[in-house]
Each structure stands twice: as C-alpha cells, then as structure tokens.
Design a protein around this nucleic acid. Sequence first.
DNA 1: GCTTGATGGTTGCAAATCCAATTGTTACGG
DNA 2: CCGTAACAATTGGATTTGCAACCATCAAGC
Lengths: 161, 161
Amino acid sequence: MPARSAPRPMPASRAGQEPLLALEEFLPYRLNRLADKVSREFSKIYADRHGLTRPEWRTLATLGQFGTMTATEIGAHSSMHKTKVSRAVSALEKRKWLARGIDPLDRRLEHLTLTRAGHAAYRDLVPLMKAHEARLLGRASASERQAIQNAIEVLERALKL
Amino acid sequence: MPARSAPRPMPASRAGQEPLLALEEFLPYRLNRLADKVSREFSKIYADRHGLTRPEWRTLATLGQFGTMTATEIGAHSSMHKTKVSRAVSALEKRKWLARGIDPLDRRLEHLTLTRAGHAAYRDLVPLMKAHEARLLGRASASERQAIQNAIEVLERALKL
DNA sequence: GCTTGATGGTTGCAAATCCAATTGTTACGG
DNA sequence: CCGTAACAATTGGATTTGCAACCATCAAGC
C-alpha cells in the first residue's frame, strides 16, 4: 500500500509557477537594503570621527536641531525607542556632550541640552553629513532627485509616518 | 493631558544659529525610518505565523526563488553577511526546512535546498507577503507607484547596489 | 609532493537591541 | 486626601548583531 498518498493537487512539476517571489523586486527588501547601505556609509563618518553609535548621533542631531528637549521628545522626533534614547543620552552625558536639566514643575521630565563640547561636535559633523548626502544625491539628475523626494513622501504618507 | 511643564525654549532660543541639519529631511534618516517601519510590518507576518527571523525569512525566500544555492550565493543575493546566513541556515536546518548537500568536486561548498516542509512554508508565506505589499502600494496611485520604483532604481544605481 | 594564499563556512565574544518589568512622579475620580 | 491610572525614564536579561579569528578545503607555484 502506497505510503502517504493523500490526494495532492499536482505532481511535482513546479515549472511555470516559480519563482513565486522575486526578492530583488520586493519593496521591503529593497528598502531595507538601501537603508542599510546608506546607513553604513553615513555612520562611518560619525563612528570614525567621534566613536558615536547611530542612536547617539541621532540624539546629538535632534538636540542640535531643537536646542532643548526631553528624552521622550527626542524619541518621537527621531523615531527611536525610549530605551535607545535613554542609553544614548547616558553615553552622551558620560562624555559631557549634553547636560540634564530638571523641570521644577514636573520632576519626571529631564530637559536635555548639548554642552559646548556637544555643540562643537554637532557643528563638526553636520557639514560632513550634508556633504556626503549631496555627493550621493549628486549621482542623480535634478529631476531624479525631485522624484526621490516625492517617492519618499508618498511612502511616508502610505505608512502614516 | 501631559503634565504641565516649564515653558520649553524652542529653536527660537538659539536665534542666530538656525538648525544646521533638519533630521526629518535628511535622506539616511528618512530611508532608515521607512525601511524600519516597513520591515516591522512585514516581519509580523512571518514572525507571527512561523516564528521566523528576518535572516531566516530571507534565506527561505532566496532558496524558494532559486531552488538550490550555497550559503555564499544566498548572502550575495539577499545582501546578508555570511554569519547571518550561516546562523539562518542552521536554524532552518534544525526545523528541517532545508537540507545541506555536499559537492563532490569541492567539499567546501554546501548546496542548500528547501525540504518539502520548507517549500510548504514558502508557498504559505509568499501570497501573504505579496498581498501586504499590494495593500501598502495600493495607498498610492499608479503613477506614484511607478515613481517609487524609479526612485528606488535611481538610489540603487547611485549606491551601486 | 610542500608551501602559500584564497575561499566557504563556522564560532567566540563584545556590543547593540528588544521587551518586559521597575522606579519615581504627576493627574484625577471619588 | 486616598487610591488608581497614566506617564517619564531607567534597568535586567534574553536575543541578535557584527567583527575578527578560526578551521577546512582547494588552487597554484615551485
């Protein structure tokens, strides 16, 4: 008696229905690969130059942009989980690039601000980062650059970001 | 309502030195945020349904697409470091979703193939993944979808991916 | 043969990440 | 006021990662 011969739809000839999914055309894969490559290139700058991690750089960048914020606000604006922010803040505080200020009206809050040294690092990094971005986008035409901006906006909207 | 707090000095407090870098307009940040959100949404599918990690899913997807490959080839095609591939392969082998075959002419190589169970999981997942991709892209118009494809291609070219 | 250098794949370990509590504080309904 | 719920931020511990060192095999030159 033939073992395991439940009625199966079709014999094994899988020609014609394969490949079912082409990874290299699959949106999440492509986005991830792009982001990964870009991130690697850019992180080289702040990692080599100041030994920063990505959460630390983002925290620095957010405070550099807004001046003073709480940890929660940093997380909201830079899309980082609060534990990442917390650890990035500790690290930056340890190297005295930011200082914590208390809120007299709500002692749960910590108002974080870059120190002079933190700001110096920020001002050191920003032109390098922008230059690298310009160099990368410079490989595309002006209209292509515009298309990239539009596409990102469409995706951000679709993802409710 | 959030707790009351002392009036927070906004960017205005840094009059004279405008924000040098707006994170929310910075390409690497935006790409990373997009990829992260997308990845999170899609990984819910294979994580919830089969307890797969992303490297495991990518390995499964690559083998499902190409049939038989070596670990190095999987890494090249799915943009994963060889250690990730190695660990994903072990995990998939442990649950008997793939089998290793030796190459009689070069015993360094391992030819990896999905087992029947592995292929079943692949066939189970692919429609769900594609449907989710379609649902996501469905929030954009046809011309916007085309613009997204073009933008990604431009970036891939600029990054030599 | 033997040595040297490349290649495929794994492993050890430190660093980074994630999730679920935990602490301390404030807001609010009774 | 009291008890409870919400909130800001931190911490602990298991999981993932990333890098380098490693083992095994092959290829080429001598």
